[in-house]
Design a protein around this nucleic acid. Structure first.
Lengths: 219, 219, 219, 219
DNA sequence: CATGAATGAGGCTTCATTCAT
DNA sequence: TATGAATGAAGCCTCATTCAT
C-alpha cells in the first residue's frame, strides 16, 4: 500500500504517521507564528501548538528554529512566484500584461500579509537565511525575463518608454504595493486614516496601477 | 560660565548628573539597539551598555522598554519631518521642488536605515505604540499640505497631471524609496546582486526620481 | 512490580520523571516558604531549592507564583477540613463533640502554624486568590452542617443555650484559638511572657475550651 | 516665636520646615502603606509619595524602612491603648464595664483595620521589631490591671465566674473580635457571604458581646 | 515515531539606599 | 533642609533545546 493510500484510509481522528501532512502542518503553523511575531518573537512551543504536534517533532522534521524559518520563507517565495507564472503574461498584450502584473502584485500582498512580515524579519537579519538558500535565486531569474519580455514588446509597439530597466521596474512595482501593506498600521496612525479599510485599499490599488502605467508612457 | 561651557569642561569620563545629556544618550543607544535587533530582539542591558549608564536609569527616565521604544520612534519621525521642512519646497519651482523631495526622501532613508527598521518593528506590532502618541499626527498634517501645494502649482503651470492625490503620492514616493532600503538584503539575495553598493544605489536613485516625475507628466 | 514499589527502589538521589512526586514536593516547599515569608516575601528560587527541582519546573507545573500560592492555600484548607471530618462528631455526645472540636481546632493550629500564615497572607491580599477558587466553598458547607448538628442535639438535651448560631460559633472557636497562635509573638512581646512555651500553650488550651463551653451553657 | 506659632503662620501652600508636621505626615503615610501591602510589600517610594515629601527626608527622620515600620507599629499600639484608657472602666459597674470593653475592642478594630494588618506583618516577622521596643511593654501592664480590676469587682458582686484570668480574657476578647476582621476576606470567600457588610458586622458585634458575657456568667 | 518533563542561561523590572548638588 | 539622580543586587519569568520513557 502506498503512503498516499495509507493516509487516505487512516482513521478519521488525528492524523498519525503521515510525514508529508505533518511537515505541511508544521510549516503552515510556522508561517503564521513567524509572521505574527517575527523571528525573534515567535515561540517554538506556539508553533507546535498551532500545528497540533509535539514540539519534538518540529525538531525532528526541521532541525531547529532557524531552519524552520528558512523553510517557511522559501515556501512563501515559492508560492508567489508560482502564482506569478500562472499569469501567462507572455500571452497578453503588453499593456494588459503590465496592468495585470501590477494588479496581481497588489492583490497578492493584500491576501498574503505573512509574506511581507516574513521578508521584514529576514531583512532585519540581513537575509542571513536566504543567503544559504540555493533555491531562491533560481526562482527569480525567470521572473525578470518575463518582465523584460513584456517591456520589450511594449517598446516595440511604441506603448512604453524605452529606458525602463526590468529589475528596477520590478522593485518599483513591488515597493509601491509592498510599502502600503507593510506600513499600513503606521500610515494609519500618522494620517489618522484607516488604510486597512476596503475603500482605502481600492483607492490605493487604482493609484498603484496608474502610477506604474503613467511612468511607462512613452517619452 | 554658561551651561554649555560647563558641560564642555566636565571631566572627560562618565557624564554625571546631567539629566538632559543622559536622556539623549539613552535615546541614541535605544534607536541603535532597537533598529539593529527589532523591539523583541533588543536587549535592555545592551541599551544601557551602549548609553554608558546604569540599567536602572533607563527605567528612571523612560518607564519601561516599550515606552523607550515609543520615545525612539517619535524622535526618529521628528527628525525626518524636521529635515523635510528644511527643504523649503514652497520656495522652489514645482518640478524642482518635486525632484528635490523625492531625492531627499531617498537620501534620507539611505542615511537613516534605523528609521526603516524602527517602522518595521512598529508595524509588526500593529502600530501599538504610535496609536498612543498624540504628537505623531500633528507632525504629519503640514507635510501633506506641503506636497499638495507643490502639486497644485505644478498643475496650474501645466507641468503635472491633474489627478494626482497628495497622500497617495506621498505613500508612493516613500514606498518606492523605502522598499529598496528595507528589503535591500533579500533583494540582493534573490537577484544575486549587491544592492548595497554605491553604484546600485546611484542607479536606484536615478530610477526613483524618473519614476515619480514620469508618472506626474501631464496626461 | 507496582508503581509504589517502583518508586521505592528508585535511586536514592534526585527523583526524576515522577510528576506526581515532583508536584507534591513543590507544593510542600511552597507551603513552607510562603508561610515563612508571606506571599510577597517568599522567593521562587528558594521554593525551587527547597523542593530540590529546577526553578523552571515550578512554572511548568503551576504556571506562576500566584497560582502556586493558591494551590498551597487550597491544600492547606483541604487538610484541615479533612482532619475535621475524621473527628466523627456526629457519633459523639454533644458536649464531648463540642469539646473535641474546640480541642482539635486548637491543637491543629498549634501543629500547623503555616496554615495561619498562609491565611494571613491571603487576607492581606483581600482573598484575591481564594475568590477564584471553586473548590473552596464546597469544602465548607458540610462543616457548618456538622456544627449545626452538634448544637441542635445539645439544645434538645438541654445542654446548650438555644440562641447560638453555628457560623458565628465556628468563627468564635476559630478566632479564639487562631489569634493566640497568629499573634503569639506580639503577645509575648507586649506582655513580656513566652507564650510559645509548653505551659502557656496548655493554659491557653484549657481556657479556650472553658470559654466556649462556658458560653454555650444554657441561659 | 515658638515652633508651633511659626507653623501656625506658615504660608497656606506646602508646609515646609515644620519637623513635627513632616514626621507626622510620614508616619501617617507609612501606616497606610505598611497596612496595605505588608512590611515586605510596602514601598519606600510610595510612602514618600503619600506623605508628599522627598524620599531622602524619610531616611532623615526615621533611619530606614524597618525603623519606620517600628515607629508605625508603636504609634498604632499607642492609639488603641490611649483610647482604652479613655473608657474609664473603673468608673462603671462591672457588667457595664466589661460589655463596654468588648464593644470598644470590636468597634476599634472595625475602624482601624490598619492596626490588624500591622500586627500581622509584625507576627510574620516574629515580632522582631517590637522586641527592640522599650515603650511597648509599659503600655500594656496597666491595661491588664484595668481588666483585673473589673473582673475582681464582678466576682465580688457575684456577677462573674471566679476562675477567669485577666490575660487569657484579654486575649480571648481580642481574638474573638480580631479574627473576624483579620480574616474577613477569607471567611467571606469560604462561606460565600459578605462579612464586610453592615448587617453581618452588627450580627458579629452582638455575638461577640454575648459570647464573652456568656462565658463570664457565674458557674 | 511520539510525549512532555527537564534544563541553564538570560530577559525585563524593581528595590532600598546613597550621593551630588 | 531638600531634591531627584544613581546604584547593584536580586526577583519573577521565559526560551530554545534535550532527555527519559
Amino acid at each position: 500500500m502506498s503512503a498516499v493510500n495509507k493516509a487516505a484510509v487512516a482513521p478519521a481522528g488525528r492524523v498519525r504517521r503521515d510525514p508529508v501532512r505533518v511537515r505541511a502542518s508544521i510549516l503552515r503553523a510556522a508561517v503564521a507564528e513567524f509572521s505574527d511575531k517575527g523571528l525573534g518573537g515567535a515561540r517554538v512551543d506556539e508553533i507546535a501548538r498551532r500545528a497540533g504536534i509535539n514540539k519534538r517533532m518540529l525538531y525532528h522534521y526541521f532541525g531547529d528554529k532557524e531552519a524552520l524559518f528558512l523553510a517557511a520563507l522559501e515556501r512563501a517565495y515559492e508560492e508567489i512566484r508560482n502564482a506569478e507564472r500562472e499569469l501567462h503574461l507572455g500571452d497578453l498584450e503588453p499593456e494588459e500584461a503590465m496592468r495585470r502584473l501590477v494588479s496581481f502584485t497588489f492583490d497578492y500582498l493584500a491576501r498574503a500579509p505573512y509574506f511581507i512580515s516574513l521578508l521584514n524579519s529576514e531583512n532585519l537579519h540581513k537575509a542571513r537565511h536566504l543567503k544559504k538558500s540555493a533555491r531562491i535565486r533560481d526562482m527569480h531569474s525567470s521572473m525578470v525575463d518575463m518582465i523584460d519580455g513584456v517591456l520589450r514588446r511594449g517598446v516595440e509597439k511604441g506603448l512604453f518608454r524605452a529606458d525602463a530597466d526590468p529589475v528596477q521596474l520590478f522593485i518599483t512595482i513591488s515597493g509601491i504595493a509592498y510599502f502600503y501593506f507593510s506600513n499600513v498600521h503606521t500610515l494609519s496612525a500618522i494620517f489618522g486614516r484607516k488604510f486597512t479599510s476596503k475603500d482605502e485599499r481600492a483607492a490605493r490599488h487604482a493609484h498603484v496601477v496608474d502610477a506604474v502605467m503613467g511612468y511607462l508612457r512613452p517619452l
